[in-house]
């Protein structure tokens, strides 16, 4: 009889205690934090969690995303897919950019299969913009009075290469608006570029001076996040406040009196247009960016610093 007692004692205890095992099983997620959301999902407001970002109160949303070109399309692709479905871009290559004062020369090609700039998509390859570029044809509402333009880049021209400008985004030029007989030729649009001293800068037309007094040096030795925001400065009037962010930090704040939208002009990623008139003259790529570019997002509002910090944080996770 004692034998039975000893057999049963642990069995009873085992049974009772094992009933509680559920709390220690895989139902619990353990001490590790949940996996971070994919960068793309975060931008599109589709994350299942906000991830380990600094500003957890910021709700990601795609409502203000006009277009989102990840630029990870396979080699040979003609179109740069817009995740938002607003307007696909077109990969343009197969021409050379001759060196001229202020612009490096480049073979006008893409080098595909480059290491991803996004840690949540490590197997996704991006492109080296070696003088080739992406053209986003004009479409109504592509440009808005307030906007944010952001991208991840990895600079590839040399530190000692000076006296050249390298353009990341450009839209517009010196032209008169089609179908509007009341206008004459004027500057419209904007350009985001690294200046001849390799510092980030921006120009917003019709002003012909650069926006930022404080110009951060371009970042080398790896990826960097660059974003510019343009928003109304003050309740009334056409003044715009322009903010430049590098890796989520405010590196420059400038004010322009007016921003003339580059209506009818394409948005160029990776080059500037050497032709004055983007509507009537053939496009003449110049000032190639010579870097890896990925995750270009155009928003219809000026993102807050917290929102931009989160975009950087999401891509910090290793």
């Amino acid at each position: 009889m004692t034998y039975w007692a000893f057999v049963l004692t642990p069995l009873v205890v085992l049974l009772i205690v094992l009933l509680f095992r559920f709390v220690g099983c895989s139902d619990f997620e353990g001490a590790d934090p949940p996996p971070p959301p994919r960068y793309r999902d975060y931008i599109m407001g589709e994350p299942n969690n906000p991830g380990p970002v600094k500003n957890t109160n910021v709700k990601p949303s795609s409502a203000n995303v006009i277009a989102y070109w990840r630029l990870i399309d396979a080699a040979g692709a003609v179109e740069a897919k817009d995740e938002k479905g607003f307007q696909n871009g077109q990969y343009k290559e197969g021409f050379g950019i001759p060196p001229v004062p202020g612009s490096e020369g480049a073979p006008g090609s893409f080098l595909t299969g480059q290491k991803a700039l996004i840690v949540t998509d490590p197997t996704t390859m991006c492109r080296f913009f070696n003088g080739a570029y992406v053209l986003v044809a004009y479409k109504k509402n592509l440009y808005t009075p307030e906007f944010t333009l952001e991208a991840w880049v990895d600079i590839r021209w040399g530190q000692n290469v000076v006296d050249f400008e390298h353009t990341l985004f450009s839209a517009g030029g010196f032209y008169d608006m089609p179908f509007d007989l009341t206008t004459t030729k004027a500057f419209h649009g904007f350009r985001v570029f690294a200046d001849e001293e390799n510092r980030w800068q921006m120009r917003i037309w019709p002003s012909t001076t650069n926006v930022f007094q404080s110009r951060p040096l371009v970042t080398r030795d790896g990826k960097t996040h660059i974003a510019v925001t343009v928003q109304k400065d003050g309740a009334v009037g056409p003044n715009k406040k322009v903010v430049l962010y590098v890796d989520g930090k405010v590196t420059g704040i400038g004010t322009v009196g007016f921003y003339s939208l580059p209506e009818h002009a394409p948005l160029l990623i990776g080059v500037a247009n050497g032709s004055n008139d983007p509507v009537n003259d053939p496009l003449k790529p110049t000032q190639p960016m010579l870097c890896l570019v990925q995750e270009v997002v155009l928003h219809s509002k000026a993102l807050t610093q917290e929102e931009i910090e989160n975009h950087v944080d999401i891509n910090k996770i290793n």
């Binding site: 205690v17 094992l18 509680f20 095992r21 709390v23 220690g24 619990f28 997620e29 353990g30 001490a31 590790d32 934090p33 949940p34 299942n48 969690n49």
Partner: peptide, 14 residues
């Protein structure tokens, strides 16, 4: 051994 966690990080309401 069967265990009862002392701390967890979890998502709620996904």
């Amino acid at each position: 051994l069967p265990s009862f966690p002392h701390s967890v990080r979890m998502r709620v309401g996904d």
